[in-house]
Deep mutational scan, measured.
Amino acid sequence: TTYYDVLGVKPNATQEELKKAYRKLALKYHPDKNPNEGEKFKQISQAYEVLSDAKKRELYDKGGE
């Protein structure tokens, strides 16, 4: 599973699309609303952290993490 899959976006997604997808999923899986989905929330946050940063995203796209 790639970070793009976690957020449900395509690899060519814009920053705005990433932000929108992250917010939607973060609300859905937030531990306050969904106590059993803490791990999913962490995955979503990690994916967004990497993909929202241009340098980290470039490194990730080249095969790094």
Rank of each mutant, 00 (worst) to 15 (best):
T1A: 13
T1Y: 14
T1F: 14
T1Q: 11
T2Q: 05
T2L: 06
Y4I: 01
Y4D: 00
Y4W: 03
Y4S: 02
D5T: 09
D5K: 08
D5R: 04
D5Y: 06
D5L: 06
V6P: 00
V6S: 04
V6K: 04
V6L: 14
L7Y: 01
L7G: 00
L7Q: 00
L7A: 00
G8S: 05
G8A: 05
G8N: 07
G8Y: 04
G8F: 05
V9D: 00
V9Y: 00
V9R: 01
V9M: 05
V9I: 08
V9P: 00
V9K: 01
V9E: 02
K10M: 10
K10Q: 08
K10N: 10
K10P: 13
P11F: 08
P11D: 07
P11T: 09
P11S: 11
P11H: 10
N12M: 06
N12A: 07
N12S: 13
A13W: 01
A13H: 02
A13R: 00
A13I: 06
A13K: 00
A13G: 02
A13D: 03
A13Q: 01
A13T: 05
T14V: 04
T14A: 04
T14D: 06
Q15S: 15
Q15E: 11
Q15L: 15
Q15P: 11
Q15T: 13
E16I: 08
E16D: 11
E16L: 10
E16Q: 10
E16F: 08
E16H: 09
E16N: 10
E16W: 07
E17F: 03
E17R: 03
E17T: 05
L18H: 00
L18Q: 00
L18K: 01
K19L: 13
K19T: 15
K19Y: 11
K19Q: 09
K20V: 14
K20I: 14
K20T: 15
K20E: 15
K20N: 15
K20P: 01
A21W: 01
A21M: 04
A21S: 06
A21Q: 05
A21N: 04
Y22F: 13
Y22T: 01
R23K: 15
R23G: 10
R23T: 15
R23A: 15
R23P: 01
R23L: 15
K24R: 08
K24L: 13
K24P: 03
K24W: 09
L25W: 04
L25V: 03
L25A: 05
L25R: 03
A26S: 12
A26V: 14
A26C: 13
A26F: 12
A26L: 15
L27R: 12
L27E: 14
L27N: 13
L27P: 04
K28A: 10
K28C: 09
K28G: 05
K28N: 05
K28E: 09
K28T: 08
Y29F: 07
Y29P: 01
Y29Q: 01
H30F: 07
H30D: 12
H30T: 06
H30S: 11
H30Q: 08
P31S: 08
P31A: 07
P31M: 07
P31G: 07
D32G: 08
D32W: 09
D32L: 12
D32T: 11
D32A: 12
K33F: 14
K33L: 13
K33N: 14
K33P: 04
N34K: 07
N34M: 08
N34F: 07
P35W: 06
P35H: 08
N36A: 12
N36C: 12
N36V: 07
N36W: 10
E37V: 09
E37P: 06
E37R: 05
G38Y: 10
G38N: 13
G38T: 13
G38Q: 13
E39W: 11
E39K: 10
E39H: 12
E39V: 11
K40G: 04
K40Q: 07
K40Y: 11
K40V: 10
K40T: 08
K40H: 12
F41N: 02
F41E: 01
F41D: 01
F41K: 02
K42R: 14
K42N: 09
K42L: 10
K42Y: 08
K42W: 07
K42E: 08
Q43R: 09
Q43A: 13
Q43T: 09
Q43N: 12
Q43F: 08
Q43G: 06
I44C: 03
I44D: 00
I44A: 04
I44F: 04
I44K: 02
I44Y: 03
I44G: 01
S45P: 00
S45T: 15
S45L: 10
S45W: 14
S45M: 11
Q46A: 12
Q46G: 06
Q46N: 10
Q46H: 11
Q46V: 15
Q46T: 11
A47W: 01
A47K: 00
A47N: 01
A47Y: 03
A47M: 04
A47C: 03
A47S: 02
Y48S: 01
E49L: 09
E49I: 10
E49Q: 09
E49G: 09
E49W: 09
E49Y: 12
V50T: 13
V50F: 06
V50G: 02
V50D: 02
V50Y: 06
V50M: 05
V50W: 04
V50K: 02
V50N: 04
L51V: 04
L51P: 00
L51K: 00
L51C: 01
L51H: 00
S52E: 03
S52W: 04
S52V: 06
S52F: 05
S52K: 05
S52Y: 06
D53W: 02
D53T: 03
D53I: 04
D53K: 03
D53M: 02
D53Y: 02
D53P: 01
A54V: 14
A54K: 11
A54L: 09
A54H: 10
A54C: 08
K55S: 14
K55N: 13
K55G: 14
K55P: 06
K55A: 09
K56E: 06
K56S: 14
K56A: 14
K56F: 09
K56Q: 12
R57T: 03
R57D: 03
R57G: 03
R57C: 03
E58Q: 09
E58N: 06
E58R: 05
E58L: 07
E58K: 06
E58Y: 09
E58H: 06
L59T: 09
L59W: 13
L59M: 10
L59V: 12
L59G: 06
L59Q: 15
L59I: 14
Y60E: 03
Y60H: 04
Y60M: 03
Y60I: 03
D61V: 02
D61M: 03
D61L: 03
D61F: 02
D61E: 05
K62T: 07
K62Y: 07
K62E: 07
K62S: 09
K62G: 08
K62Q: 11
G63M: 15
G63D: 10
G63E: 12
G63P: 06
G64M: 15
G64C: 14
G64N: 14
G64V: 15
E65K: 04
E65A: 11
E65L: 15
E65W: 15
E65T: 11
